[in-house]
Design a protein around this nucleic acid. Structure first.
Length: 254
DNA sequence: GTGGGTTACGTCTTCCCTTG
DNA sequence: CAAGGGAAGACGTAACCCAC
């Protein structure tokens, strides 16, 4: 794999870059903050947080950031057979919207740090694996979006709940995350997942609780607290409703 | 310390109507 | 038709209690 360049850019007061004949490598750009406008060949896209752009080699490319508009992005210039095959197989559009960029951003940050080292100090195998992991996360997200035909906003709510289920999740926080009212967010979620947000969070919490019952010596009360149930009586009630036995008995039978 | 019950109060879900 | 908002019933939570 040929990783030409990997870094992070942040603009606060306008920017404009036009490449009439594009780059000699693929450019992959993840918007992490703010907003920008990108033109690839004759298509123009408004790019917001969580959007990822793929710019094939030798394509007209323009990046424009309005005056006083902040914009942060990670970008990679990449070539090599592995990525060319990935691109060919994925048939990705120029722009993809990701429902959760936390893991990808973390990997990209590692890759950016690693690739800043002098060439002879770099671990090329690690760089390759980090880059491939980023692409696999993107692939996974793309497949989820295609296979479920779920509105993107519902996927974002699901990711938010998954990220926060072990702490306190409120409907208001989920609705704020996608800029909808609580009633609208709850309605959309139920319509596309056939379960309420709280039911979805409970499944995640119960799975985490069972793992802790299996692999730790924590008391059931501690498990209830650390898996987002907030208190033992509630954990006990939900657990029994789902598994038909109290958590203590379930643990003994493991 | 753990398991389980009860109760009052707060929050969530869902329905239905309104608005743009 | 998508989105917001009010209202009522369902559900979640906290704070007790007791038994083992």
């Amino acid at each position: 794999m040929d990783l030409e360049h990997c870094s992070y850019s942040f603009h606060t007061d306008g920017y404009d870059d036009t490449r009439k004949t594009g780059f000699s490598n693929f450019l992959i750009r993840l918007q992490t903050e703010g907003k920008a406008t990108t033109t690839i060949n004759d298509q123009t896209f408004v790019v917001e947080q969580g959007d990822i752009m793929f710019v094939p080699p030798e394509c007209f490319y323009r990046l424009h950031i309005e005056d006083k508009q902040k914009s942060g992005d990670f970008h990679i210039l990449i070539n090599g057979e592995w990525f060319r095959n990935w691109w060919k197989n994925q048939k990705c559009p120029y722009k993809l919207s990701l429902s959760n960029t936390e893991q990808i951003t973390t990997l990209w940050r590692y890759l950016s740090t690693e690739s800043r080292r002098p060439t002879h100090e770099q671990n090329h195998e690690l760089n390759d694996q980090l880059f491939r992991s980023i692409m696999l996360f993107i692939e996974q997200e793309r497949h989820a979006q295609i296979s479920t035909m779920r509105p993107f906003i519902v996927t974002r709510m699901m990711r938010y709940i998954e990220d926060n289920a072990l702490e306190r999740v409120t409907l208001e926080a989920v609705a704020n995350e996608v800029a909808l009212s609580v009633s609208r967010a709850a309605h959309l979620f139920k319509a596309h997942t056939n379960q309420t947000m709280i039911q979805y969070a409970q499944k995640i919490r119960l799975d985490a609780a069972i793992n802790q019952m299996k692999y730790t010596n924590m008391t059931l009360e501690q498990i209830a607290l650390t898996t987002g149930f907030g208190n033992y009586p509630y954990f006990h009630r939900v657990f029994k409703q789902v598994h038909r036995v109290p958590p203590g008995q379930y643990r003994k039978e493991l």
